[in-house]
């Protein structure tokens, strides 16, 4: 464990807690893309298949349970909670996320470190995570404005993977033959995808005005 990875995990934890608290307290999911939340639930489900077979540490297992529990709770809230589901904007949240799942699965069948069931799904979860934010960013472009909590959620989500990149650099220089191109490239792509959002988020924060995304 190093400071970059710990910061990344805490930032990631903060992002899901911000979203869960928002939905739980104000009983609204306005501006939140259910598609992105469903993609994240799939990411965690396919990433953490080893949760019951490979015990790494209490921290590792605890965090996996938190990420699985929070992502599935958010999906449940947005689909089934009688009050929250009313604020879900399904007419605007129309990104066909199956167009992301199938290519990521095919790519994971081709590009992986070893062709086993768990390794392919683990690789799939990396590719899917890299693009999972797309429905949310498309929804924001459509609805134009963004409330603070959703903005913070996306910012934290982008920041966590940026911290992980520093973690990978650190581990590359401190651990012999720690080389993993697949997560590195997927993680870099993912962070770049947040790039323009960060740009507008930073400028809105600097000018202390409401975050407006260009049409």
């Amino acid at each position: 464990m190093n400071i970059f990875r710990f910061a990344g995990d805490m930032t990631h934890l903060a992002s899901v807690l911000v979203l869960l608290l928002k939905i739980h307290t104000i009983k609204s999911c306005a501006g939140v893309s259910l598609k992105t939340q469903e993609l994240y639930a799939i990411v965690f489900a396919t990433r953490y298949l080893d949760i019951f077979t490979d015990f790494i540490s209490l921290y590792n297992t605890f965090m996996k349970l938190v990420f699985l529990g929070s992502s599935f709770s958010i999906v449940w809230y947005m689909r089934s909670h009688k009050i929250v589901r009313r604020s879900y904007d399904k007419d605007q949240d129309t990104f066909r996320h199956y167009f992301l799942i199938v290519p990521c699965l095919l790519l994971a069948m081709i590009i992986n470190e070893k062709f086993t069931f768990r390794e392919v799904l683990w690789t799939f979860s990396l590719f899917l995570e890299a693009v999972a934010i797309l429905p949310q960013l498309v929804l924001l472009q459509r609805t134009r404005n963004i409330d603070n909590l959703t903005g913070q959620y996306i910012f934290l989500l982008g920041a966590y993977r940026a911290f992980y990149i520093f973690n990978w650099i650190y581990r590359y220089f401190t651990e012999p033959h720690y080389v993993h191109w697949i997560p590195w490239i997927a993680g870099l792509l993912q962070t770049l995808l947040y790039g323009d959002f960060f740009y507008y988020y930073f400028h809105s924060w600097k000018n202390n005005k409401k975050l407006q995304l260009p049409a």
Partner: peptide
């Protein structure tokens, strides 16, 4: 072994 080292990450 080599490619398991990253599996300790979330």
């Amino acid at each position: 072994e080599r490619n398991e080292s990253i599996k300790d990450e979330l």
